[in-house]
Structures are given as C-alpha cells and as structure tokens.
Simulated scan of single mutants.
Amino acid sequence: MPRALITGITGQDGLYLSELLLAKGYEVWGLIRGQNNPKLDLVRSTVPDVRLVTGDLTDLSSLMRALSASRPDEVYNLGAISYVAYSWENAMVTSEVTGKGVLNMLEAVRLHTLDDPGRVRFYQASSSEMFGKVQEVPQRESTLLWPRSPYGVAKVFGHYMTINYRESYGMHASSGILFNHESPRRGPEFVTRKVSQAVARIKLGLQDEIVMGNLDAKRDWGFAGDYVEAMWLMLQQPTADDYVVASGETHSIRDLLDAAFAHVGIEDWSGLVRQDPQFMRPAEVELLIGDPSKARQVLGWKPSIDFATLVGMMVENDLREQSDLVGR
C-alpha cells in the first residue's frame, strides 16, 4: 500500500486529493497545524480514513516528526496562506508560510531520505499568480515570472527552491503551476465562491447585492477535483519536472457573474452588483491564461469540467446550503 503525506489537508485541494488517493488504495496522512484547528472536524467528516499528524510548515522539527510518523512514499505540499488579498496585509507571515514553509518541507524530506534522495517523491503547489504582470500569452512553463503580490513572490521562492533541491540533491521534486481552480469547497473569501454564495442568497431573497472589486480581471478557471489528478500524475513520472495545469481558456469576472446569475434565471444583474475600491488589489493581475500542452502530452491530463458547468455546480451547492440554513 503506497503512503502519502499531504500538507494543507484542510483546503479544497487537500480534501479532493485525499479522496483521490484513498480511492487508489493509498494510506493517506494529513498534516494539521494546531490541536484546535477549526477545520479539523471538516477533515474528519469528509475523509474519515485519513490519518492526522500535527505539524507546522514554519517548524522544521515538527515536519521531521511528521515524516517519521507517516513514512510516506509521496509528499504533497499544498499548505500555504493562499488568500492573495491577505498577503498585502500580512506580507511577513505569508512569506514565512507560503515561501519559507516550502524550504522547510524540502529540507525535512531531504534529511529524511539521505540514504536515497529519490525515495520520497515531492509535489509543490506552485501558482499562476507567479506570472503576475504576464510577459507572454498564454503562460507556459518557460514564461518569465513577474509576481504582483507578496503571495506571488512567496510562491516564486518556493517554486525555484523546489527546482534547486531537484537539481542539487537529486530529489524527485515536481511543481504544478496550477491556474485558478475552484469548487463548492472553496472558501467564501475567494471571488468565485463569494459570487456563487451571494447569487444563491439573492435568488432566495436573503441579500440584495454583491459588492465587488475589479470586474475586468481575467482568469483561467477549472475544477479543483480535476486538478488534483494532475498532481498525482506528476509523481508517477520517472523523472520530476514542472507543469502548467490549466483549462487554456480565460474568463472575466463579468463572465463569472453572467454565468452565476444566468444559472438562477437572472439575465440583467447590473442593479445587483456594486463596485467598491476597497476590493481592488494594490497591483492587479489583469490576464491569466495557461498553456497546458505539456501536461496533456506528458501526463495525459485534461480537464473534464468546463467553466459554465463549474459555476453552475457551485451555485447549486450554495442554493442547497443557504436553503438548509433558512430552514433551520
């Protein structure tokens, strides 16, 4: 039975990846930060077969203990402070967790496998936010990185550190440069879930409007459940490498609003959406669209759920959740 350790087990990717690996017969371990983690019950109820171990990406010794307890064949480093807007307010914490945390995890794996550097295969969750002020359209593995947020800068550090450990120590360490991937499990602070939840509440008469920032920013959105399969496929390759994982299509925030409101039968949403400068980024990433050719050719990966289906799935989930809350 193969064994895997997942950091960031409480996030949407961690949950979907756990389900995927368990279905493939893995023994799955999840790293939990703190004994009173507010999402602990979510993990236990969603993936009860996952074994949990405490640890912190900012504490190397705790990561060493987690590796000794779980004895993994594969490590998926998904843990990060992943809300971009938060990173401007807390650049130092974001850098420590999202950036230096990658170094700590790589070093822990290196020390754990001194006798055989390739014995544990390592996946790093890199991000399309690394492209920032994009220098090429679409963005591919070789595109110059120009991050536009402390989060993006921290992700660039982790990305290059993963490459460095692969080249310096012979580790089987791969990075997935994942473009925006969403699901009903996405946190409500992220724009896709903010929109799907608000549209559901407007449809049910529970709120009157959505307050938004930049409606013209464009993103390449896909389904998180599809993207975790690409993570797994990377670690099944004989040679570690870096891959862009994306849909290859771009949509604006206006497109997102169109799709979400159309799903509940509202065609004209102009009077239901208000823009507020407080939701504008200090430095905006205007256009992200990935070229997933390498992932398609080498990994045999392609997304199964398109943009409209994804948005509809999220709105339907929030209609059920909000209806249940009203009925209580």
Rank of each mutant, 00 (worst) to 15 (best):
residue 173 A to T: 05
residue 308 A to W: 05
residue 284 E to L: 13
residue 129 E to H: 14
residue 25 G to R: 06
residue 72 P to Q: 09
residue 85 A to F: 13
residue 111 L to V: 06
residue 130 M to T: 14
residue 115 D to W: 07
residue 17 L to I: 03
residue 195 V to M: 02
residue 99 G to Y: 02
residue 153 V to Q: 04
residue 152 G to R: 10
residue 235 L to H: 05
residue 126 S to K: 07
residue 125 A to T: 08
residue 262 A to Q: 12
residue 61 S to N: 07
residue 215 L to R: 15
residue 120 V to H: 01
residue 22 L to D: 07
residue 37 N to Q: 11
residue 78 L to A: 09
residue 71 R to V: 10
residue 283 A to D: 15
residue 238 P to K: 07
residue 49 D to Q: 15
residue 11 G to T: 13
residue 16 Y to F: 15
residue 109 V to C: 08
residue 295 A to N: 06
residue 220 D to H: 10
residue 195 V to F: 03
residue 145 L to C: 06
residue 27 E to R: 10
residue 209 E to P: 00
residue 317 N to P: 00
residue 134 V to Q: 05
residue 307 F to L: 02
residue 16 Y to D: 13
residue 172 H to R: 02
residue 234 M to N: 00
residue 226 D to R: 12
residue 223 F to L: 14
residue 10 T to R: 14
residue 11 G to W: 02
residue 188 P to N: 14
residue 195 V to G: 07
residue 30 G to Q: 05
residue 288 L to Q: 13
residue 7 T to D: 04
residue 221 W to K: 01
residue 298 V to G: 01
residue 233 L to Y: 00
residue 61 S to W: 01
residue 123 Y to L: 15
residue 100 K to H: 06
residue 23 A to M: 05
residue 133 K to Q: 13
residue 53 V to T: 12
residue 264 V to Y: 12
residue 254 R to S: 14
residue 97 V to G: 08
residue 63 L to D: 02
residue 22 L to R: 03
residue 315 V to I: 12
residue 73 D to M: 04
residue 79 G to N: 02
residue 60 L to N: 03
residue 211 V to T: 15
residue 118 G to Y: 00
residue 91 A to T: 06
residue 181 H to A: 15
residue 115 D to R: 12
